[in-house]
Amino acid sequence: MRILFFGRGLISTQYAWALEKAGHTVEFYVRKGRKATFGGYIELEMWDARRGKQFIKESWNVQLHEEIRPNYDLIIVSVSTEQLPEVAQLLSTVTGNTPILIFNNIWQDLKSAISPLVMNNVVFGFPGAGGGITDNRLRGGFFKMIFLEKPRAGTEQINNMVKELFESAHFKISWIKDMQNWLWNHFAMNAAMEAEVLRQGSFPALLNHRDSFANVGKNMREIAPVLRARGAKIDMISLLLTKIPPPLLSMLFNKVIFAKGSLARLSIEYNNTKAGFSVIEVVKEAKKLGISLPRLTATLENNQRHNVIDN
């Protein structure tokens, strides 16, 4: 298959590399001027967990374009959540009927999030990867599992194509029945974690403070009423975050989920993205619903970001 990745970010680069190794043609769309800035290669230092845990270290040549051509079998979009509306608007004008996989965190309802794209031409998924990019050097890794919504009426053909694509590269699909609900829960959990990142100062600092994940659980307890007010069902992971006593939650994350040397921990240690957007969006929604979020609001105020809630 011939695949275009929108942007040469962390997630796009890791999956593009894996799909190219499986025999597919992968290219990247980047904004004007970025082709010269990025250059024709990227240094990879990442863990591939599809077949055990293999460390990949190579200088990988990439194909970058500053325009979107109409000759792709699939376009894969994985961008910062705040960029998605602008990206959807651009794609609606240049892609025609090319199928699109939105590989993204989303807090809006799905149809609004990708407007004016046509829902029947889009499927939604979520990656199992993490890390960061600094100075053309990617450090991180990806798991065997990716998440993909079960087919909606009209998307069966695209879903099957995406399924076969990732399975050809030895990924395993976890099918999500209600992608809207799953993404709302995931976004809320992300906000609970990012609030603690803002308190500690960085993603690596989050891992090095013994109370961080206890606080993540407290943040999630505060956010849960917002999810319910939106009509979301609290999923199993969110429920565990809200029900497990904070000291036990802290031990579970520090000793098991993010144990030293684990791929999950490395993905967080290398994360150098700017935290806060998900916290702002959740607090804005809570304000509309008349729900108080004192922990998250105080975090934004302490980081001098509280003024954005009213904008």
Rank of each mutant, 00 (worst) to 15 (best):
R228M: 13
F187G: 06
N215R: 12
N159W: 05
F171T: 07
I146R: 02
F213V: 04
F187Y: 15
G201H: 05
S212R: 03
G128I: 11
N120S: 15
E194R: 01
N120A: 14
A129F: 07
Q200E: 12
M193G: 00
L227K: 03
E194D: 09
H170F: 13
R199F: 00
T155M: 08
A224W: 03
R152Q: 11
H186K: 15
K163N: 12
R228I: 14
E196G: 00
M145K: 15
F147M: 10
G140D: 08
F166P: 00
A229W: 01
L138Y: 02
F171H: 12
N215H: 13
E194C: 03
D178S: 07
Q180K: 11
M161G: 06
K163H: 13
A191F: 08
S212Q: 04
V197Q: 04
V123P: 00
N208L: 12
F203N: 12
R199L: 13
T155S: 13
G154T: 07
F203C: 09
V226I: 09
R137W: 06
E149D: 00
T134A: 15
N208F: 14
L227H: 06
W182S: 01
G125T: 09
P116Y: 11
M145T: 11
A214C: 01
V197S: 05
S202H: 07
G130A: 09
L183I: 00
